[in-house]
């Protein structure tokens, strides 16, 4: 019973966590017409990169979504670097060198972020192992019951015999009131 509620709790927590990722992002309207590159290939790369770069002013928006001045500056900078022939990785490296990993909305997988990336799975694994171990464990065997004494056995037999042959009573007999 205890395990069942634990499993239910874990399933609910997972559903909530996943829900946060599945929720669709709001429509992006921050990119101004004068920023858009003539080359549609470069522009689509710029848009894709911008979606993964954090606006450091608003911090929970990408520079693609943000109307902040710095976000605009960074969008223009990303496009300039793409036009200059930088690869996507070079553009990201350029910004990481100046603002640190925080500028990336998706933190890179490296030893300092292992806890972040793998911690939840580790917790699930530990919880799963715990449930598995608990379900395998047999209830501690209780000491074998002491055999009934002769008197007890006799009493039990009498009770069982009574059960098998209940005292008959006429069906129409109304319930008896206790004598007052």
């Amino acid at each position: 019973m205890r395990n069942a509620s634990l499993v239910l709790g874990l399933v609910l927590a997972t559903a909530l966590t996943l829900g946060a990722f599945i929720a669709p992002p709001p429509a992006a309207l921050a990119v101004q017409p004068d920023e858009v590159l003539a080359d549609p290939m470069l522009e689509s790369r710029a848009r894709a990169l911008s979606k993964h770069l954090r606006c450091l002013v608003c911090q929970n928006q990408s520079i693609d979504d943000s109307d902040a001045g710095l976000a605009r500056d960074l969008r223009v900078l990303v496009r300039e670097r793409l036009k200059a022939g930088d690869s996507d990785e070079e553009v990201l490296a350029f910004l990481v060198a100046r603002y640190g990993d925080f500028v990336l909305l998706k933190p890179p997988v490296k030893p300092t972020t292992w806890l972040l990336w793998f911690g939840p799975f580790a917790i699930f694994a530990v919880a799963g192992l715990g449930i598995w171990a608990a379900s395998r464990r047999k209830r501690p065997a209780t000491a074998p019951a002491a055999p009934l004494s002769a008197a007890e056995q006799e009493k039990l037999d009498a009770l069982l015999a009574q059960d098998e042959h209940p005292p008959s009573r006429p069906p129409s007999d109304p319930p008896q009131r206790p004598a007052s």
Binding site: L56, V57, G69, L70, D73, L74, L77, R98, Y99, G100
Partner: peptide, 13 residues
Amino acid sequence: RNGRAGIEWGVYG
């Protein structure tokens, strides 16, 4: 004027 040196220095405010 255009904030480019700021970006170079990682300025965000």
